[in-house]
């Protein structure tokens, strides 16, 4: 009986959407790239023996595995099997820095998206549902929107000081209005639906209508916005770190890696190419995934 009871509660829509997603080749590839990335990053200590801050003065600015084919004999000499992606100017293993840095980047992206989502959804639902709150909330959101995103985040970091927590906070505050806007516009539609009137006529309270009926119907749009937002949050934290306003050195972060690597652009371009590629690939995957999710979730699900 319990299994029956739970089966009533869970909408099958999520798994149905997932099945549809897997039918799309591009989206499937992106999905699995992200899964692999997350596994690698989570299992970093198993992949690489070095910690990201471990220095190896005997092997500085070493090339990665590709150095074996280098025309420069000095490079070929420097290649070490346990530094598959080479080392930076302090002899720190690039693979470790990339993976541990990915932890920070993804975590900051996830947490800031989550926080932005939480407040954005609450503000958006209240603004969409209660006409008298609409103006107050949305004008405040407009205020946040008037700042170019990264500028707002920089302003907040400049006020609070550069730290991982503060930059996460800054990015989440910047994320709130995009969630709030999307959710509000959806709630405005849902509020007028017959079934909202119907549950109201059955005596449901506002609270119940908002969180049981309206919220469920905003989920598709929330999933889409959140996925897209992950990409922008990742870019933001990398940008902030690159500018020295995000994750403080020496802790690794993709943007920070590019910042240190740029000084050795001509000697060892891989130092910026590799973290750069990591950012680009991850963000593209999140964006494509979000885009395909929108195709799947947005127009349908009504029937």
């Amino acid at each position: 009986m319990t299994s029956q009871a739970t089966s009533i509660k869970h909408p099958g829509a999520v798994s149905a959407a997932f099945q549809k997603l897997l039918k799309n080749k591009l989206a499937t590839v992106c999905f699995f790239v992200l899964i692999v990335l997350i596994i690698l990053v989570a299992a970093a200590p198993l992949v690489t023996p070095y910690l990201p801050e471990d220095t190896d003065v005997t092997s500085r600015l070493a090339p990665g595995f590709w150095g074996k084919w280098s025309k420069n004999p000095a490079d070929v000499m420097k290649v070490k099997a346990d530094h598959p992606l080479g080392t930076d100017h302090l002899g720190r293993d690039m693979l470790s820095r990339l993976l541990y840095g990915g932890r920070t980047s993804l975590l900051v992206g996830l947490v800031s998206t989550g926080m932005g989502l939480f407040w954005g959804v609450i503000f958006g639902m209240l603004a969409g549902f209660y006409k008298r709150l609409d103006n107050i909330i949305m004008r405040f959101m407009d205020l946040l929107f008037t700042f170019p995103g990264i500028l707002l985040a920089m302003l907040i970091v400049a006020m609070l000081g550069a730290s991982t927590f503060n930059s996460t906070l800054a990015i989440s505050i910047w994320s709130i209005p995009s969630f709030a806007r999307m959710v509000r516009s959806r709630v405005l539609q849902i509020r007028e639906e017959d079934y909202v009137m119907a549950v109201r006529s059955l005596g449901a309270s506002d609270w119940r209508i908002l969180f049981h009926h309206v919220f469920h119907n905003t989920l598709p749009i929330i999933i889409v916005v959140a996925t897209m937002r992950m990409g922008s949050s990742l870019i933001s934290i990398s940008t902030l770190s690159y500018l020295g306003m995000g994750v403080p050195a020496p802790a690794p972060e993709w943007g920070g890696l590019i910042a240190t690597g740029k000084n050795y652009l001509w000697q060892r371009p891989s130092l910026i190419v590799i973290p750069g590629l990591a950012v680009v690939i991850t963000v593209i995957c999140f964006n494509i995934l979000g885009d395909k999710l929108r195709d799947i979730l947005d127009p349908s699900l009504k029937d």
Binding site: Y195, M197, R208, H216
Partner: peptide
């Protein structure tokens, strides 16, 4: 008049 995302059972028992 029925919420499209919830089962009949959920809406009735609610």
């Amino acid at each position: 008049c029925l919420n499209p995302l919830l089962t009949i059972g959920y809406q009735m028992t609610e």
